[in-house]
Amino acid sequence: PPPSSAAVPPSLPPYFIKGSIIQLADGELKRVEDLKTEDFIQSAEISSELKIDSSTVERIEGSHTSPNVAVVQFSVGEHRAQVSVEVMVEYPFFVFGQGWSSCCPDRTTQLLELPCTKLSVGDVCISLTLKNLR
């Protein structure tokens, strides 16, 4: 039988569970719920491969495949490239200056115990791209 240590669905990564230990690029360890916008920005500055991009939420829709799945459309970076991602409604994104947000914060808090606000159109999320695309 599968381990019964957590009630987290297999589709949700374990690092979003409250109390998970996250290592920043400078080696500092923080709990996932304690992360701040600056932690991501500073880690990306240290990184030789990754850079932070701003991804603005343009649309949030339900999925045709499952009631627990949402399709979030982002406008990414200065070129405003349109990117859609299909995620579980409880999947948290980090909003600049605000913190963790999801399409269904009640489920996120229930499943992960991660303090979370409602992800809304217009929110600017932290995302990553490669530094050297050329």
Partner: peptide, 25 residues
């Protein structure tokens, strides 16, 4: 061999979605 169980540590970038914009030029 039984490996000691330690607290997992996750890299910061695993928490951030990788949204690579499509390059049109």
């Amino acid at each position: 061999n039984v490996e000691p169980r330690s607290v997992p540590v996750f890299p910061w970038h695993s928490l951030v979605p990788f949204l690579a914009p499509t390059q049109s030029d």
